[in-house]
């Protein structure tokens, strides 16, 4: 179980392989990679040209570790890896990696989705998009709250 919050990019292949390297009890590895989209800005022809991710150092790592710990109590997992970048990112850049290793795909898929849903509403990151008019903070989406809420029963 390991969490990294970093400016640097990551290698999806290396991270994915590491989740099952040297062990024979892993039957499934599910991964998610989040990328910066070049969204069209509302009512204009221009697109998001870059974004800056701010975070709360210390709390960020802590919140991700709490989410991973929660996932390991809900599913049988052999490994979890979470990497989230901060700083300035361009369209196409990787933002986040979540990888989950388990004996079977059901646990791996579910835990991977759970970690992302919780991360979206609980990890202290904020996106600011560059637009021709200057920086614009991205609004939180209600859909993210409902996605996280469905894991609470």
């Amino acid at each position: 179980m390991s969490v990294s919050v970093q400016e640097a990019d990551f290698d999806v292949g290396v991270e994915t392989n590491a989740l099952s390297a040297g062990r024979l009890d892993v039957g499934a590895v599910a991964t998610f990679v989040g990328l910066v989209r070049a969204d069209k800005l509302s009512g204009e022809g221009s697109e998001v040209s870059a974004m800056t991710l701010e975070h709360y150092p210390g709390m960020t790592e802590k919140s991700l570790e709490t989410i991973v710990a929660e996932a390991t109590t809900r599913w049988r997992l052999q490994g979890v890896r979470v990497i989230h970048r901060f700083g300035r990112l361009m369209p196409g850049d990787r933002i986040v990696f979540v990888g989950v290793a388990s004996a079977h795909r059901g646990d791996a898929f579910a835990a991977c989705e759970f970690v992302m849903d919780y991360l979206k509403t609980r990890a202290p990151f904020w996106k600011k998009e560059d637009t021709p008019e200057g920086g614009r903070w991205v609004d939180a989406r209600d859909a993210d709250d409902s996605a996280a809420a469905r894991w609470e029963e």
Partner: peptide, 23 residues
């Protein structure tokens, strides 16, 4: 992250921020 009913103690680190938008 906590709610408004939680007590604040001496030397606490308190933070205020908008809803998060990572991922």
């Amino acid at each position: 992250m906590v709610g408004p009913e939680v007590a604040v103690a001496d030397r606490d680190e308190v933070a205020f921020f908008p809803p998060v938008t990572g991922g």
